[in-house]
Design a protein around this nucleic acid. Structure first.
Lengths: 208, 208
DNA sequence: GTTTTATATGAACATTTGTTCATATACCAT
DNA sequence: ATGGTATATGAACAAATGTTCATATAAAAC
């Protein structure tokens, strides 16, 4: 009796579609594309195409493009903090030097496993609204404070010699982040060797 | 006798216009906007508006948008290299340690005077065509090689203790570049103090 | 089996994009 | 003064942009 609607191709919900699958897929694709081309250079249609969906469907998962970015960044920062809180206990009772080694090796390994998220978290801050920026910034500071606490502790106990622990904190993190711009697995050095090389430099840099 | 053309507002070459002025203005504006918002997020019309000109006029100075970016990046890399070649002579006869201090202080100060160019040169590589990318990459490598040469020399003469000078080179440069993400003149520390703090860490990191 | 809800489509929208071009005016050499 | 060249305008273009919405179907609940 419905003479008007002659649905040629499927134009509605697709078979097997589920938000528990599509949602993460969208975020994963967006993460990779944002890292590769930059937030502004990636269109919603590119993301949708890679996910295998029409652009309109993305708006079941994010109110707008910028929220997609800020969600990714916040998720990443919370992941970093949570992972460190879990690993921190390994050296909770140890001296500052052991804590610093733990932090150094953790930072390199954890960040190396998520180069896209790291890249975005450091490079796309300018595309965030003020509110979202503040949220991410607070999380980042709180991660940096973890390192600074270790340095302060080491200075207090005399094992480290650092004039300004704030500057040292930023210097160390910048140095460690640099790994991600050049390291490729399967290269000349193993990740273990890289960890050790950087730990060597970090240790000496903050010692007497 | 020309009854059709009734030129209301001036619609042609403007008074005082000269390529020696407009050209550099365009590059300066583009540099600042690219650094602030990212290459892809800045439109030719935004640049033109800031320069005080119509978008079409930009194409007297660049064949397209991407060339504008790659020109800026190549100019910056050549500036860095030229400035270092000039400053390098100061410690050409000196030992590796003096050379490294010279390099460290030079790098921080020079880059601090051009935060926009530095930011672009490190962040917008992905927006370059393969050819332009290679050109910039070669220049960057050649700057890094300058530092590596100093480290190699120091290792050879026994004043430095570094397992892998390539890794150390990248680590030091990453650390120094980090300054630009947080230092603001008029803050807690003077540029001289920052230079010294970083030199302190660099020296210790590569020493025994 | 029927109803309700979750998840997609695909067309439409107003803007904005990079770029081109015919044309107009200012500047400079003669 | 005059003519040639350098430097701008402003309109136009097709393509792409983020976002919305009525609608259609699959999946889940009953």
């Amino acid at each position: 009796m419905n003479i008007c609607s002659y649905t040629i191709g499927g134009m509605a919900r697709t078979q097997g579609s589920h938000s528990d699958i599509t949602g993460p897929r969208i975020r994963a694709v967006a993460l990779q594309l944002f890292a590769q081309h930059g937030f502004a250079a990636v269109s919603m249609r590119q993301i949708a195409k890679e996910v295998g969906v029409q652009a309109g469907a993305l708006y079941n998962y994010t109110p707008d493009k910028q929220s997609l970015l800020s969600t990714l960044m916040e998720e990443h920062m919370r992941d970093v903090l949570a992972a460190w809180q879990a690993r921190r206990v390994e050296t909770a009772e140890a001296g500052a030097q052991a804590q610093l080694e733990n932090f150094t090796r953790f930072h390199i390994r954890f960040h190396m496993e998520r180069p896209d998220a790291v890249f975005i978290a450091y490079m796309e801050l300018r595309n965030l609204s003020e509110d979202n920026f503040m949220t991410v910034e607070v999380l980042r500071r709180s991660y940096e404070t973890e390192l600074q606490r270790i340095l302060d502790e080491g200075v207090a106990s005399g094992v480290f010699t650092v004039r300004d622990t704030k500057v040292a904190t930023l210097a160390v993190i910048a140095m460690l982040n640099g790994v991600m711009t050049w390291y490729r697995s399967g290269g000349r050095l193993s990740l273990e060797e890289v960890e050790t090389a950087y730990w060597d430099m970090v240790r000496k840099a903050v010692s007497g």
